[in-house]
Design a protein around this nucleic acid. Sequence first.
DNA 1: CGGAATGTTGATATGCCTCAACTAAAGTGG
DNA 2: CCACTTTAGTTGAGGCATATCAACATTCCG
Lengths: 242, 242
Amino acid sequence: MTWHKTLITKLQQHSKLSKTDLLAIQTLPGQIRGIDKNEDILRQGDKPMDSAVVIEGMVARYHTAPSGGRQYLSYHHPGDMPDAQTLFLEVMDHSLCAIEKSVIVLVPHKAITDLFKKNPDVGFAFWKETLIDASIFREAITNNSSRDLQTRLAHFFCEHFYRACKADLTKPAPCRLPLTQTQLGETLASSLPSISRTLTKLRKTKAVDFENGYLHVKNWKKLCELGDFNPSYLHLHEGQKG
Amino acid sequence: MTWHKTLITKLQQHSKLSKTDLLAIQTLPGQIRGIDKNEDILRQGDKPMDSAVVIEGMVARYHTAPSGGRQYLSYHHPGDMPDAQTLFLEVMDHSLCAIEKSVIVLVPHKAITDLFKKNPDVGFAFWKETLIDASIFREAITNNSSRDLQTRLAHFFCEHFYRACKADLTKPAPCRLPLTQTQLGETLASSLPSISRTLTKLRKTKAVDFENGYLHVKNWKKLCELGDFNPSYLHLHEGQKG
DNA sequence: CGGAATGTTGATATGCCTCAACTAAAGTGG
DNA sequence: CCACTTTAGTTGAGGCATATCAACATTCCG
């Protein structure tokens, strides 16, 4: 299977694409690159000439505080283009790293924007992707600002599980989520000990269990309630609005 | 002055547009609407057929918690299109309201996307606008998650002041910021009393003063330090990558 | 097998929330 | 124009969630 298929599958989660559009996407050139665990793909300040499509693994965006601490902003899975904004924003305002050993494809900006000019609907699909991204950021603001830690954690698990299901990444019951508790803390504005204690509390609800990089969702409905989770902000109702 | 000029000025803050593009933008139809203070323009769940351009005043996006509380997500000024995402996302995942008496222009989605198909560079300029939006959301995640309250407040003031200056909204020294302390709290993940106390502390630094809906920046450099503020995430270096 | 990274648990400290009383300003109607 | 009501802001006291520090247990990995 070519990497184009991975990208197309992702776009089709929310956009309808014509035969012509699909063929056009498949003409995109790209250079495959393996990334080690914890390796940076891009750093704040970089001015890349291409954008990455995730093919395997998981990558994350993060801000670096003056103290050196990290604030993780989002996580990305196969089919995602986590630095799509570099198509039009020259300078990276954050960094991009691999959470686990990953594979990406680097696609030159010029090839992408030329494609958009010839096939506007492809451009709209990519645009929609970046708009869903923005919606996820908005939800993260609310999650980290307005919810208590247990709700926050549960919400984060819900989002990850829901997206993984939609992308069909989670065939067997346990869902891969290769994060340390430290990273969960750096995502959810919390400290490692608090994360640990809150995980224990969540475990006792019998709704989820998180251990060794795997998420075991035992009671989805209950987990959604615990996390105040409503998936509408993910906008994955397939194909509506082109 | 027609409302198109307001929109064009905003786009030109970050994108170069050709004569043809400018003329094309000026053919956009739009319906002018006045909005009262605190009136909602759009609510979570709405499926609008047009997008709003702010012409006068200030509007905000917000999430509503189950308890009824608000989390403000962003603030928008003349020239902004705060619901641009509805071009491609059918359902509103948040609400949009006027912070003060405002004027907006409603532009039909169809007219906008038709324009993009004929003039891709105009589409790219709008796209860039939504990408800057996303960058601001990312910064808000970090601000509300990783910084202490005083830094958070100072950063918020920096962002507002910087954007106002770039948009040339702040000819006289005091910069309009028509928010109550309650709203500041609902923006910065804090309570009213904490905001009040922190404002007093900030006042004592002689870097800023905020009162009666006006922001008095007295020492910009110091305020930036207090707020850990670096404007690069606003991507307003005019015309590059246009 | 040994060292590093990760996770658990406890004790203490603290920033901020909540509640509450009060002041000040602004908007409303007689 | 003034009394009344509402909204906005200040300040204080007490309590709680969570940060921080620390010791220990566990797992991972070369």
